[in-house]
Amino acid sequence: MLKQRSLFWIYFKKNRLAIAGASTISAIFLMAIFAHLIAPYDPGETDIATKLAPPSFKHLLGTDQLGRDVFSRMLYGSRVSLSVGFVAVSISLFIGIIVGSIAGYYGKIVDSVLMRFVDIMMCFPAFFLMLTIIALLGPKIHHVMIVIGATSWMGTARFVRAEFLSLRERDFVQAAKVLGISDKRIIFRHMLPNALAPVFVTATIDMATAILIEASLSFLGFGVQPPAPSWGNILTEGRIYIFDAWWLTLFPGLAILITVLSFNLLGEGLRDALDPRLREEGIK
C-alpha cells in the first residue's frame, strides 16, 4: 500500500501541469477563505461618482455600472463559485456512489434496472435539463447546487459499479460474506475504500464542470441572483457595457477559465498518476 502511494507521488510530481493546477486551486481557495480580509472595498458598496472606472491603483480591476469595486466583488464571487461547485459535486458523488455500489454489489436485476436508469439520464441534454428544472423551482443558490448535483452523478455511478463488479469476486469480499457480515458493512467498510481512487479523479473534473455550468446558468439568468456576486453574474451584468467597459467582461471570464482549467489539469494529472498502464511506460 505504501509503495503504491509513493509511486503515485512520483508520477504525480512529474506532471508539471497538474502541479500548476493544484497550486492555482490552493491560491483560489485561500483567496475565497480570506476574501473579507483581502477585499479593499465592501462588495455591495456603490459609488455612482466612480462608475465604470477602468482598472487603476485605486480599483485594481475597475468598477462596474454602480461604481462597485470589481476586484472585491470577484473575491467574494469566488466563494459563491467554489461553494456551488463543492456542494454540487458532493451531492453528485453521494448519489453516484450509492447507485453505483448497489448496482455493482447486487448485480443481476438490480443492476440492470439501475443501469437502465443511468442510460436514460445520460440521454438528456444535461444543460437544458438543468435550465428547465431551475426555471421550475426558482433560481436560488441551493437549487442550483442540488440541480447540478442531481443531474451529473451518472459518470460516478458507472465508475463505482465497474469497480464493485471486479471487487465483488475478490477473496476478501467472499470471506466477509461467509463470515456473515451485513451487506451494508461489506459495501461501505470493505469495498468502497478500495473503489475511491477513481472517484476522486471524476470528482475533481466534475468540480470544473460544475463551476462552468454555474457560470453558464448565471449567464442565462438562472444562476445565483444579483446583487449577490458570482463570477457568472458579474460577467452577465457587464456584457451590456462590453464596448465601453471591457474589464467587466474580461476579468470574471478569465477567473472562470483559470479555475476550471486548474481543476481539469489536476484531475487529469491524478488520473494519469493512478493509471498503471501509463506508469509502466514511464519506467521504460
Binding site: 501541469l17 470544473a208 462552468l212 457560470a215 449567464f219 467582461t249 474580461l250 472562470i256 477559465l257 487529469e268
Partner: peptide, 22 residues
Amino acid sequence: CTFGAYLGISIPSFWLAYLLIL
C-alpha cells in the same frame, strides 16, 4: 495541443463568444 485541448474544455463558451464578437 494537449494544453490547447484543456483550454478548449475549460473556456466558458459565452465568454469566448463575447470576446470574438468584440
